[in-house]
Design a protein around this nucleic acid. Structure first.
Lengths: 263, 263
DNA sequence: TATAAAGGTGAATCCGCAC
DNA sequence: AGTGCGGATTCACCTTTAT
């Protein structure tokens, strides 16, 4: 299978073209725009009557759930039995995603907490500062016990003690944050490379194929190359694809992470 | 309504007896549906005392979901519009619980991460050390904007900086851990008082009524009294009720937390 | 009495192969 | 599929015992 490529297209259309059990690791950073504030319509375009708060939101949940079932089912199909999948989300969507993953038969190995070292404060003083995102790390099923986990590598990376499920990592800012021609951030949710480094380093080996169905500006691909892994990215927006291509193309020998040879 | 009382009975049977919109805060620590299969041994061959209590046995996701829908729906009914609910869980159950809460119309304010300072290691090196539990803090609905959140209190409690959604707290061990006559832990999953202290201090005022439908050995009630709040506890197991009564009854003036008067 | 060493334990979905 | 067995595997905190 051709690797190290970016496919421009909707993942719902492109994932079905990948063969069964062909990728080692999946990293997915899906959108979580559930649009709960807008008028609600059922799939058949009838408006939902605002009878009850719970039901009022239900149709938009259904739409989001349906989307997630589609791409997650395809992800499960293309994942090798020895592979694992990572999905990142916030409290807005991770409970719906997690529930669906369980229903599809995925087996949770860890719920990793990305503890943001520099979260945005809560200016209104109405809640606790929202300082985390959650990564669900799952095997294909409970039976799949031969998944890759580089325990010793992560222990070494963590200074000699086994790594826990809490990762304190700064937000992606400064030099690392990709800017557009207007000088503004090119992507609203670019993830820090340190996050992907831990994901890929822990759950894959050199040469493995990493699939990212929501490639964005290509952090997954960039880190995969810096760790001597292969990648397949799927991204709908042409501008992001262009950025990702340039970003990954500019990686040189000097960018390779020291940990690249650990597995 | 009579408060500061422990009701011995199943919460599915007892919750319906409480009036609509009658409590200010709910803290719920439901069974996690852990699905443990084989015994686990430490490297020194001692066996880990797992949670194999009967109350944590469910035959399927469907059965667990159905159970949660029932008690969560009742919780929503008895919660005041100005009130909030906390539910704690691990990755085994929190995604099912969170999904159900969203479907019932609850509005997530924070997903608070209990970062355990001293979690049990992963002995076999198969995963990251599971170092967290998650607390979902929710309003009754998206419209309920007048919920209680003592922002300044928590900021002060946190040393002058606004408190974030990550709480680093030690496990409940040592003197605080209730022991049975045999000297062994009285309850498999007793929560640290520090956790409840933050829950109650942040989301209630003096005199408020705190409901705990899975009272266990009464940590919620004990902390409520130490913070000058009222409580209602529901607990099925008679032994736990006995312990909780004695525990709360022995609280004296000297046990009151210094923060009790902050709100 | 103070300090050090030894022991116990925690909501855990914790091995892999041969027969 | 179930069983048996060889072998590899741990961190922070608290309590108890020893020096």
């Amino acid at each position: 299978m051709e690797t190290d490529r970016i496919i421009q297209g909707d993942c719902l259309g492109e994932l079905p073209k990948l063969p069964d059990e062909s990728v080692d690791v999946i990293f997915a950073d899906p959108p979580y725009n559930m649009q709960l504030k807008n008028p609600l319509y059922r799939p058949n375009n009838t408006r939902v009557a605002g009878v009850d708060d719970g039901w009022d939101k239900f149709s938009s949940f259904m739409e989001y759930d349906s989307f997630c079932v589609s791409w997650l089912r395809e992800c499960r199909r293309v994942l090798k039995p020895t592979g694992t999948i990572w999905v990142i989300g916030s409290y807005h969507n991770i409970f719906r995603v997690g529930n669906i993953m369980l229903n599809l038969g995925f087996w949770i190995l860890n719920d990793v907490t990305w503890h943001k070292a520099n979260p945005m404060p809560n200016f209104m003083g109405t809640r606790f500062t929202n300082a985390t995102e959650t990564l669900l790390w799952c095997a294909k099923s409970a039976d799949c016990k031969k998944y890759t986990f580089n325990y010793e590598v992560m222990k070494r990376y963590n200074g000699g003690k086994q790594m826990t499920s809490v990762w304190r990592i700064k937000l992606c800012t400064g030099e690392e944050r990709l800017k557009g021609n207007d000088g503004k951030r090119a992507h609203s949710t670019q993830k820090p490379e340190e996050l992907l480094k831990r994901v890929i380093l822990s759950s894959s080996r050199q040469g493995d194929i990493i699939l990212d169905p929501f490639f964005g500006t290509g952090t997954t691909g960039a880190v995969a190359k810096k760790l001597n892994r292969r990648y397949i990215g799927i991204e709908k927006e042409r501008d992001y694809v262009t950025l990702a291509c340039a970003r990954i193309g500019s990686i040189t020998e000097s960018d390779i992470f020291p940990e690249a040879g650990w597995v």
